[in-house]
Amino acid sequence: MIALLLRDLRLATRAGGGFGLGVAFFLILSALVPFGVGPDRATLAPVAPGILWVGALLACLLSLDRLFALDHEDGSLDLLATAPLPLEGTVAIKALAHWITTGLPLVLAAPLFGVLLQLPGQAMPWLVVSLAVGTPALSMLGAFGAALTVGLRRGGLLLSLLVLPLYIPTLIFGAEITRRGAEGQATATPLLFLAGITLGVLALIPWAAAAALRVNLR
């Protein structure tokens, strides 16, 4: 399992792996929004939590279609399916690798983009916490979507269509935590909900994703 994780991380960081693309995309998004809505602190600050969360969502989507598709094309997926590793474990590990290469950089870089979008200082810790708690669920749900569409030639758009509705609860609670943090309100309730969703997703989705992969392998 460690070997698979290390391989995925190494592949992501080598040439053409696309490591850091998510953060770059996030940066561009954060830079574009003020051009669209205007530079005023008064207009930017209230929408910043939502923009940052939607940005994280979209950045997460970027590399999803490659999660299983590359392994499917070169036959690695067949070999992984015959390996002693349960397919559920393979899915979980690949989702973890996706999170480390996409979600984690977003979590770490988010305060920077919060500054760009005039997010109040007191909301920064909550932004980081909400992203840290929420993004693992995004990666795992993305792995489910990628498993559903792995055999399709033009699966990218369909993947977004399937995965984005699944992101709604995470987005609602994640943005709510940040918004409440910005307004100095209590954040415990949405944080607990968000953590509950993430834990539930991490516990159950690997089975659904592995089932979808098995269907696509035969």
Binding site: P165, I168, P169, I172, F173, F193
Partner: peptide, 11 residues
């Protein structure tokens, strides 16, 4: 997730 979204939206 449709059910989950329903309650998330209420919140």
């Amino acid at each position: 997730f449709a059910l989950l979204s329903r309650y998330a939206v209420l919140f």
